[in-house]
């Protein structure tokens, strides 16, 4: 496979777009802008190669269906943000990293550990058998089903401590 050419302007444009979207919904791009731009160049390269934004730090199969879980933002981003203050490739980081209280690095690959679990839990179940707890933002009522509430509510920007366990 040949190396793809991605224009500098396209990288900058997507960087700005992703940064605006991230900040508007309670996420943060990695403040190491040069590193971040290279990841974004990787996303655009993968878009040219495969037709979708496969994670730049994972080997894509080339079949979108097989790679859905690693299309950026990947299924593992929020879990990794909670546990490691960054996603796998470190395009997204936590507030701690933005404030300089934590540095980024290589983190363990989560893919393959939770994938099976997520697939197994897709059928309808009684409330007592839910695969994830449901969290409610006390400020705006936003509901989400995941291990822990998000760092910041993506709707109203309330912080994690404003969430309560709903189910």
């Amino acid at each position: 496979m040949r190396k793809m050419r991605v224009a500098k302007e396209d990288v900058l444009k997507l960087y700005q777009r992703l940064n605006d979207e991230a900040e508007a919904s309670g996420y943060h791009l990695n403040p190491d802008i040069e590193f971040t731009k290279e990841l974004i160049r990787g996303l655009l390269t993968n878009e040219q190669r495969y037709g979708y934004w496969a994670c730049p730090c994972r080997l894509a199969s080339g079949a979108r269906e097989e790679d859905l879980d690693i299309v950026c933002p990947c299924d593992y981003r929020d879990h990794d943000l909670t546990e490691y203050d960054q996603c796998y490739c470190a395009l997204y980081v936590s507030e701690k990293v933005v404030r300089g209280e934590k540095t980024t690095g290589s983190i363990p690959e989560r893919r393959g550990t939770t994938q099976e679990k997520a697939k197994a839990g897709s059928s309808s179940k009684a409330i007592s058998e839910l695969s994830f707890p449901v969290w409610r933002c006390r400020v705006c009522g936003y509901l989400c089903a995941r291990e822990t509430p998000p760092e910041i509510c993506p709707i109203c920007k309330a912080r994690r401590e404003r969430f309560e366990k709903f189910i």
Binding site: K3, E38, R41, G42, T45, P56, C57
Partner: peptide, 9 residues
């Protein structure tokens, strides 16, 4: 390595 990966680089 992967040519698109920051940690590989």
């Amino acid at each position: 390595a992967l040519s698109t990966c920051g940690w590989c680089e």
